Simulated assay, not measured.
Amino acid sequence: MADKRRFDLFAQFLTERFPAPRIYDIAGGQGRLNEALSRLGRTVTTFDLRHKHLPVRYEQRMFTLEEPCECDLLVGMHPDGATRIIIEYAAKHRLPFAVVPCCSDNSMPYNPWRRYLADLARELGFPHVEEQELPMEGRSRVVLGDFSPR
């Protein structure tokens, strides 16, 4: 069972970690992370294919590398098959990213998948890649990358 606090916990983590005012939420489902981040003063656009969603800024389409860059941060809460494109897009536009991966798009087990994502970010030029833990049940490791010096 998924932790019902996951969106609020991730939103709090993101706002404490990144000063980014404009955020792309990739494969954001109904838009619950968007809703949580919006309550914290961020402008968020969720990209997903769902027809039913919350009344938030929502683009009902698949996110691609060709998307115009109008954000300061890319995020994904259990974005499934969109996890890799978040990192690739962030690298292309030199933006920070934060993802809470769950399952891979290639049947890779969870821990190797997380390591693969961190390695991918490094290969794409992110000088700062790390993992953090959210205080929640279930898949709670955040993989994040940033170009800013720490």
Rank of each mutant, 00 (worst) to 15 (best):
Y24F: 14
R32N: 12
A20V: 01
G31I: 05
E35D: 14
R32E: 14
A27G: 10
R5C: 11
K4D: 15
N34F: 02
E35V: 09
L14D: 05
A20T: 00
D8W: 04
F10R: 01
D25P: 02
P21A: 08
F18D: 00
E16M: 10
A27I: 03
N34I: 04
R22M: 02
I23V: 13
Y24S: 00
Q12W: 04
R32D: 14
G31L: 08
G29R: 01
P19H: 06
I26L: 10
A27E: 08
F10T: 07
K4V: 15
D8A: 12
R5E: 13
I23R: 04
Q30W: 15
F10P: 00
R17P: 02
E35Q: 15
E16N: 09
L14A: 14
A11N: 01
D25K: 07
L33N: 10
N34T: 15
F7P: 04
A27R: 01
G31P: 07
T15R: 04
I23C: 02
N34V: 07
N34L: 01
D25H: 09
G28E: 11
N34R: 10
Q30S: 15
F18Y: 12
L14V: 08
T15H: 07
T15D: 04
I26V: 15
A27W: 10
I23S: 00
N34G: 06
E35F: 11
